[in-house]
Design a protein around this nucleic acid. Structure first.
Lengths: 136, 136
DNA sequence: CGGTATCCGCCCAGATACTG
DNA sequence: CAGTATCTGGGCGGATACCG
Protein backbone atom coordinates (compact mmCIF):
# COMPACT_ATOMS: atom_id res chain seq x y z
CA UNK A 1 0.00 0.00 0.00
CA UNK A 2 1.45 3.28 -1.05
CA UNK A 3 1.64 6.27 1.22
CA UNK A 4 -1.20 8.05 -0.49
CA UNK A 5 -3.67 5.36 0.33
CA UNK A 6 -6.27 6.58 2.73
CA UNK A 7 -6.32 4.00 5.46
CA UNK A 8 -10.04 4.30 6.14
CA UNK A 9 -11.35 7.38 7.79
CA UNK A 10 -14.90 6.86 8.77
CA UNK A 11 -15.71 4.68 5.79
CA UNK A 12 -15.65 0.93 5.49
CA UNK A 13 -12.15 -0.42 4.74
CA UNK A 14 -12.31 -0.57 0.98
CA UNK A 15 -14.72 -3.14 -0.29
CA UNK A 16 -17.06 -5.83 0.83
CA UNK A 17 -15.41 -8.49 -1.29
CA UNK A 18 -11.97 -9.28 0.10
CA UNK A 19 -10.68 -9.86 -3.42
CA UNK A 20 -11.47 -6.30 -4.41
CA UNK A 21 -9.37 -5.15 -1.53
CA UNK A 22 -6.35 -7.12 -2.61
CA UNK A 23 -6.79 -6.30 -6.26
CA UNK A 24 -6.85 -2.70 -5.31
CA UNK A 25 -3.82 -3.24 -3.14
CA UNK A 26 -1.67 -4.52 -5.96
CA UNK A 27 -3.04 -1.99 -8.40
CA UNK A 28 -2.21 0.80 -6.02
CA UNK A 29 1.30 -0.53 -5.88
CA UNK A 30 2.21 -1.41 -9.43
CA UNK A 31 -0.59 0.26 -11.32
CA UNK A 32 0.60 3.79 -11.03
CA UNK A 33 1.85 5.89 -13.87
CA UNK A 34 5.59 5.38 -13.49
CA UNK A 35 5.74 1.79 -12.32
CA UNK A 36 4.01 0.51 -15.42
CA UNK A 37 6.12 2.62 -17.73
CA UNK A 38 9.31 1.44 -16.06
CA UNK A 39 8.27 -2.19 -16.34
CA UNK A 40 7.37 -1.71 -19.99
CA UNK A 41 10.67 0.00 -20.72
CA UNK A 42 12.71 -2.65 -18.97
CA UNK A 43 10.79 -5.38 -20.71
CA UNK A 44 11.67 -3.81 -24.04
CA UNK A 45 15.31 -3.04 -23.43
CA UNK A 46 16.31 -5.69 -20.91
CA UNK A 47 18.67 -3.55 -18.87
CA UNK A 48 18.70 0.18 -18.44
CA UNK A 49 20.76 2.60 -16.43
CA UNK A 50 19.29 5.25 -14.21
CA UNK A 51 19.68 8.12 -16.63
CA UNK A 52 18.60 6.02 -19.58
CA UNK A 53 15.30 5.41 -17.85
CA UNK A 54 15.10 9.04 -16.91
CA UNK A 55 15.56 10.17 -20.48
CA UNK A 56 13.30 7.51 -21.97
CA UNK A 57 10.37 8.22 -19.69
CA UNK A 58 10.68 11.92 -19.09
CA UNK A 59 10.45 11.29 -15.36
CA UNK A 60 11.94 13.45 -12.67
CA UNK A 61 14.96 12.16 -10.75
CA UNK A 62 13.00 12.08 -7.58
CA UNK A 63 10.10 9.99 -8.86
CA UNK A 64 12.40 7.65 -10.74
CA UNK A 65 14.44 7.05 -7.63
CA UNK A 66 11.37 6.52 -5.46
CA UNK A 67 9.57 4.31 -7.94
CA UNK A 68 12.62 2.15 -8.66
CA UNK A 69 13.18 1.64 -4.96
CA UNK A 70 9.59 0.60 -4.53
CA UNK A 71 9.76 -1.79 -7.46
CA UNK A 72 12.98 -3.25 -6.11
CA UNK A 73 11.39 -3.60 -2.70
CA UNK A 74 8.45 -5.44 -4.22
CA UNK A 75 10.82 -7.80 -6.01
CA UNK A 76 9.85 -6.74 -9.53
CA UNK A 77 13.08 -5.01 -10.44
CA UNK A 78 16.70 -5.86 -9.71
CA UNK A 79 19.37 -3.26 -9.09
CA UNK A 80 23.00 -3.96 -9.95
CA UNK A 81 25.61 -1.51 -8.80
CA UNK A 82 29.03 -1.26 -10.45
CA UNK A 83 31.49 0.65 -8.26
CA UNK A 84 33.32 2.10 -11.24
CA UNK A 85 34.19 5.71 -11.82
CA UNK A 86 31.82 7.09 -12.74
CA UNK A 87 29.40 4.76 -11.00
CA UNK A 88 27.06 2.63 -13.04
CA UNK A 89 23.77 1.06 -12.01
CA UNK A 90 21.75 -1.30 -14.10
CA UNK A 91 18.08 -2.01 -13.59
CA UNK A 92 16.36 -5.07 -14.96
CA UNK A 93 13.24 -7.13 -14.41
CA UNK A 94 13.36 -10.01 -11.97
CA UNK A 95 11.52 -13.24 -12.80
CA UNK A 96 8.59 -11.86 -10.84
CA UNK A 97 8.80 -8.69 -12.88
CA UNK A 98 8.91 -10.77 -16.05
CA UNK A 99 5.77 -12.58 -14.99
CA UNK A 100 4.09 -9.23 -14.65
CA UNK A 101 4.77 -8.39 -18.28
CA UNK A 102 2.00 -10.60 -19.61
CA UNK A 103 -0.91 -9.08 -17.66
CA UNK A 104 0.45 -5.64 -18.42
CA UNK A 105 0.68 -6.55 -22.07
CA UNK A 106 -2.94 -7.68 -22.07
CA UNK A 107 -3.95 -4.39 -20.55
CA UNK A 108 -1.82 -2.48 -23.02
CA UNK A 109 -3.32 -4.34 -25.95
CA UNK A 110 -6.81 -3.61 -24.73
CA UNK A 111 -5.87 0.00 -24.28
CA UNK A 112 -4.42 0.35 -27.75
CA UNK A 113 -7.30 -1.52 -29.31
CA UNK A 114 -10.03 0.49 -27.62
CA UNK A 115 -8.60 3.95 -27.27
CA UNK A 116 -10.31 5.16 -30.41
CA UNK A 117 -13.62 3.78 -29.22
CA UNK A 118 -13.13 5.53 -25.91
CA UNK A 119 -12.33 8.75 -27.72
CA UNK A 120 -15.48 8.37 -29.80
CA UNK A 121 -17.60 7.73 -26.73
CA UNK A 122 -16.11 10.78 -25.13
CA UNK A 123 -16.81 13.03 -28.07
CA UNK A 124 -20.35 11.71 -28.20
CA UNK A 125 -20.81 12.35 -24.50
CA UNK A 126 -19.34 15.82 -24.71
CA UNK A 127 -21.53 16.71 -27.66
CA UNK A 128 -24.61 15.54 -25.79
CA UNK A 129 -23.63 17.62 -22.78
CA UNK A 130 -23.00 20.58 -25.00
CA UNK A 131 -26.38 20.24 -26.66
CA UNK A 132 -28.08 19.95 -23.28
CA UNK A 133 -26.51 23.12 -21.99
CA UNK A 134 -27.23 25.08 -25.16
CA UNK A 135 -30.93 24.59 -25.81
CA UNK A 136 -31.10 27.86 -27.70
CA UNK B 1 17.86 13.39 -26.79
CA UNK B 2 17.47 14.47 -30.36
CA UNK B 3 19.80 17.22 -31.61
CA UNK B 4 17.08 19.76 -32.14
CA UNK B 5 15.46 19.04 -28.84
CA UNK B 6 15.36 22.08 -26.63
CA UNK B 7 16.58 21.32 -23.16
CA UNK B 8 13.47 22.70 -21.60
CA UNK B 9 13.06 22.51 -17.87
CA UNK B 10 9.58 21.12 -18.17
CA UNK B 11 9.68 17.45 -18.89
CA UNK B 12 9.15 15.66 -22.14
CA UNK B 13 5.51 14.65 -22.69
CA UNK B 14 5.65 11.20 -21.16
CA UNK B 15 7.73 8.74 -23.09
CA UNK B 16 9.81 8.31 -26.18
CA UNK B 17 7.86 5.28 -27.37
CA UNK B 18 4.44 6.42 -28.54
CA UNK B 19 2.91 3.20 -27.22
CA UNK B 20 4.06 3.97 -23.72
CA UNK B 21 2.31 7.28 -24.00
CA UNK B 22 -0.99 5.74 -24.96
CA UNK B 23 -0.70 2.93 -22.48
CA UNK B 24 -0.16 5.51 -19.84
CA UNK B 25 -3.09 7.49 -21.17
CA UNK B 26 -5.54 4.68 -20.73
CA UNK B 27 -4.05 3.62 -17.42
CA UNK B 28 -4.37 7.12 -16.11
CA UNK B 29 -8.00 7.02 -17.09
CA UNK B 30 -9.25 3.59 -16.06
CA UNK B 31 -6.38 2.43 -13.90
CA UNK B 32 -7.15 4.49 -10.88
CA UNK B 33 -8.32 3.15 -7.59
CA UNK B 34 -12.05 3.64 -7.96
CA UNK B 35 -12.57 2.94 -11.65
CA UNK B 36 -11.24 -0.57 -11.36
CA UNK B 37 -13.24 -1.32 -8.25
CA UNK B 38 -16.41 -0.04 -9.88
CA UNK B 39 -15.84 -2.15 -12.98
CA UNK B 40 -15.16 -5.21 -10.86
CA UNK B 41 -18.28 -4.63 -8.79
CA UNK B 42 -20.49 -4.11 -11.82
CA UNK B 43 -19.05 -7.16 -13.49
CA UNK B 44 -19.98 -9.21 -10.45
CA UNK B 45 -23.45 -7.88 -9.83
CA UNK B 46 -24.57 -6.83 -13.30
CA UNK B 47 -26.51 -3.74 -12.25
CA UNK B 48 -26.05 -1.59 -9.21
CA UNK B 49 -27.65 1.56 -7.91
CA UNK B 50 -25.71 4.57 -6.79
CA UNK B 51 -25.92 3.89 -3.08
CA UNK B 52 -25.33 0.19 -3.55
CA UNK B 53 -22.01 1.00 -5.15
CA UNK B 54 -21.32 3.52 -2.46
CA UNK B 55 -21.90 1.01 0.30
CA UNK B 56 -20.09 -1.81 -1.44
CA UNK B 57 -16.93 0.12 -2.14
CA UNK B 58 -16.72 2.45 0.81
CA UNK B 59 -16.30 5.38 -1.54
CA UNK B 60 -17.34 8.94 -0.87
CA UNK B 61 -20.31 10.35 -2.74
CA UNK B 62 -18.14 12.85 -4.48
CA UNK B 63 -15.62 10.38 -5.87
CA UNK B 64 -18.32 7.90 -6.84
CA UNK B 65 -20.19 10.57 -8.74
CA UNK B 66 -17.07 11.85 -10.46
CA UNK B 67 -15.73 8.41 -11.32
CA UNK B 68 -19.06 7.13 -12.62
CA UNK B 69 -19.43 10.18 -14.82
CA UNK B 70 -15.97 9.64 -16.22
CA UNK B 71 -16.63 5.96 -16.85
CA UNK B 72 -19.90 6.84 -18.55
CA UNK B 73 -18.13 9.46 -20.63
CA UNK B 74 -15.55 6.90 -21.70
CA UNK B 75 -18.28 4.50 -22.72
CA UNK B 76 -17.46 1.82 -20.16
CA UNK B 77 -20.53 2.24 -17.98
CA UNK B 78 -24.16 2.92 -18.82
CA UNK B 79 -26.45 5.00 -16.67
CA UNK B 80 -30.19 4.39 -16.60
CA UNK B 81 -32.42 6.85 -14.82
CA UNK B 82 -35.87 5.92 -13.56
CA UNK B 83 -37.93 9.01 -12.76
CA UNK B 84 -39.80 7.30 -9.96
CA UNK B 85 -40.26 8.57 -6.44
CA UNK B 86 -37.83 8.18 -4.96
CA UNK B 87 -35.58 8.33 -8.01
CA UNK B 88 -33.65 5.28 -9.06
CA UNK B 89 -30.50 5.05 -11.15
CA UNK B 90 -28.94 1.86 -12.36
CA UNK B 91 -25.35 1.52 -13.49
CA UNK B 92 -24.09 -1.34 -15.62
CA UNK B 93 -21.22 -2.19 -17.90
CA UNK B 94 -21.51 -1.43 -21.58
CA UNK B 95 -20.12 -3.93 -24.13
CA UNK B 96 -16.91 -1.91 -24.06
CA UNK B 97 -16.89 -2.16 -20.30
CA UNK B 98 -17.47 -5.89 -20.57
CA UNK B 99 -14.49 -6.20 -22.86
CA UNK B 100 -12.41 -4.51 -20.21
CA UNK B 101 -13.24 -7.21 -17.70
CA UNK B 102 -10.86 -9.75 -19.20
CA UNK B 103 -7.64 -7.69 -19.01
CA UNK B 104 -8.62 -6.59 -15.53
CA UNK B 105 -9.24 -10.19 -14.58
CA UNK B 106 -5.78 -11.15 -15.84
CA UNK B 107 -4.26 -8.42 -13.77
CA UNK B 108 -6.33 -9.42 -10.76
CA UNK B 109 -5.29 -13.05 -11.09
CA UNK B 110 -1.66 -12.06 -11.30
CA UNK B 111 -2.12 -9.85 -8.29
CA UNK B 112 -3.76 -12.54 -6.20
CA UNK B 113 -1.23 -15.13 -7.30
CA UNK B 114 1.82 -13.02 -6.55
CA UNK B 115 0.85 -10.91 -3.60
CA UNK B 116 2.47 -13.27 -1.13
CA UNK B 117 5.68 -13.26 -3.16
CA UNK B 118 5.63 -9.49 -3.20
CA UNK B 119 5.10 -9.45 0.53
CA UNK B 120 8.02 -11.81 0.98
CA UNK B 121 10.26 -9.68 -1.22
CA UNK B 122 9.25 -6.66 0.76
CA UNK B 123 10.02 -8.23 4.10
CA UNK B 124 13.36 -9.39 2.76
CA UNK B 125 14.14 -5.90 1.49
CA UNK B 126 13.09 -4.26 4.71
CA UNK B 127 15.15 -6.67 6.77
CA UNK B 128 18.20 -5.96 4.64
CA UNK B 129 17.68 -2.24 5.05
CA UNK B 130 17.24 -2.67 8.76
CA UNK B 131 20.45 -4.69 9.02
CA UNK B 132 22.33 -2.09 7.01
CA UNK B 133 21.22 0.75 9.24
CA UNK B 134 21.94 -1.13 12.45
CA UNK B 135 25.55 -2.24 12.10
CA UNK B 136 26.02 -2.23 15.86
C1' DC C 1 -32.56 8.34 -3.38
C1' DG C 2 -29.17 10.49 -6.21
C1' DG C 3 -26.79 13.64 -6.79
C1' DT C 4 -24.15 18.91 -6.83
C1' DA C 5 -21.41 22.65 -4.58
C1' DT C 6 -18.01 24.05 -1.45
C1' DC C 7 -14.31 23.91 1.61
C1' DC C 8 -10.02 22.07 2.97
C1' DG C 9 -6.17 18.96 4.37
C1' DC C 10 -2.76 16.08 2.79
C1' DC C 11 0.06 13.68 -0.39
C1' DC C 12 2.30 13.58 -4.97
C1' DA C 13 5.39 15.02 -7.79
C1' DG C 14 8.34 18.64 -10.04
C1' DA C 15 12.15 21.98 -9.33
C1' DT C 16 16.33 22.93 -7.35
C1' DA C 17 20.51 22.27 -4.92
C1' DC C 18 23.92 19.37 -3.14
C1' DT C 19 26.87 14.79 -2.44
C1' DG C 20 29.82 10.55 -3.40
C1' DC D 1 26.64 9.05 -13.20
C1' DA D 2 23.49 8.13 -9.60
C1' DG D 3 21.48 9.48 -6.45
C1' DT D 4 19.57 12.37 -1.64
C1' DA D 5 17.44 16.53 0.70
C1' DT D 6 14.34 20.19 0.85
C1' DC D 7 10.84 23.32 -0.60
C1' DT D 8 6.55 24.15 -2.84
C1' DG D 9 2.08 24.08 -5.08
C1' DG D 10 -1.42 21.66 -7.43
C1' DG D 11 -4.67 18.20 -7.28
C1' DC D 12 -6.97 14.28 -5.28
C1' DG D 13 -10.16 12.97 -2.26
C1' DG D 14 -12.95 13.18 2.21
C1' DA D 15 -16.41 15.86 4.94
C1' DT D 16 -20.21 18.68 5.00
C1' DA D 17 -24.17 21.05 3.45
C1' DC D 18 -27.73 21.52 0.38
C1' DC D 19 -31.14 20.60 -3.99
C1' DG D 20 -34.61 17.73 -7.12
Amino acid sequence: MRPGYTEETTLAPAAQCPDCKRINEVLSRVGDRWSVLIVVSLSQYGKLRFNELKRNLGISQRMLSLTLRELERDGLVSRTYFPTIPPKVEYALTPLGESFKEPVKQLALWALGNLSEIDNARRHYDDAQQAASEPA
